[in-house]
Design a protein around this nucleic acid. Structure first.
Lengths: 109, 109
DNA sequence: CATGGTGTTCGATCCTTGTCGTACAGTATG
DNA sequence: CATACTGTACGACAAGGATCGAACACCATG
């Protein structure tokens, strides 16, 4: 029988449908967070652990940004051993906020 | 010969095409500013003076928000006597940021 | 010209939040 | 078990920005 680890059980996710527009915009307004989302958008799902992103901040700050993205319904996280893998919740988020990801992460600047 | 007033001459506008995504998102992330944009989106152009908006802030703060919207290429302003009329730059802004206004101001929350 | 209305500017304040160091928990590997 | 690696939690700090009051400029109207 497969049992979730205690660590994974503390991982609370928020459904994009429950996210207020204000929360979504606050999450998307940060350049470091958009950089994370762009990275996820251009790679296969569940292939990027938190530590594999090339970010201009220390790991404590990066951890904070991942938490913000999760509570805004933008990413899903899953533990795999010592690493925490990420996935962009593109279809779910697009359903709640049509065009918002396209207008923000599908861009150069 | 018609000459612009000194007051109107100080009104500097920014083209949406010159606006970085970061500036646009910062402007759209504030609820008071979105409320202004929604108001403009649902009325005829050049019919709303700054003082005619029902905002939960004092006029000094409102003036600040209009300045932010102008420098983000989201609104255009024109002086008409003592009043300053506003217009949502929908087509120009949509061209530079397709879907962004639709995802933010065309919404309930 | 005096008064009232519209809107901006300036300085001050307050609050949010992005940032980091450190400590800690969980996992893998020797 | 000892060590190294991955990521989070917590407290502290600093910067940015939203807010306001007061003073000011401009316009309209009597």
């Amino acid at each position: 029988m497969v049992v979730e680890s205690a660590r994974a059980r503390t991982l609370s996710h928020v459904e994009p449908a429950e996210v207020p527009l204000q929360v979504a915009l606050d999450a998307l307004a940060d350049p470091v967070r958009r950089s994370i989302l762009r990275d996820l958008a251009t790679h296969d799902e569940w292939t990027r652990a938190c530590g594999t992103f090339d970010l201009p901040v220390k790991k404590a700050t990066a951890s904070h940004h991942f938490a913000v993205l999760r509570s805004a319904g933008l990413i899903e996280q899953r533990d795999e051993g010592a690493r925490r893998l990420n996935r962009l919740r593109r279809p779910e988020f697009d359903k709640s906020f049509p065009g918002l990801l396209a207008a923000t992460v599908d861009r150069e600047d």
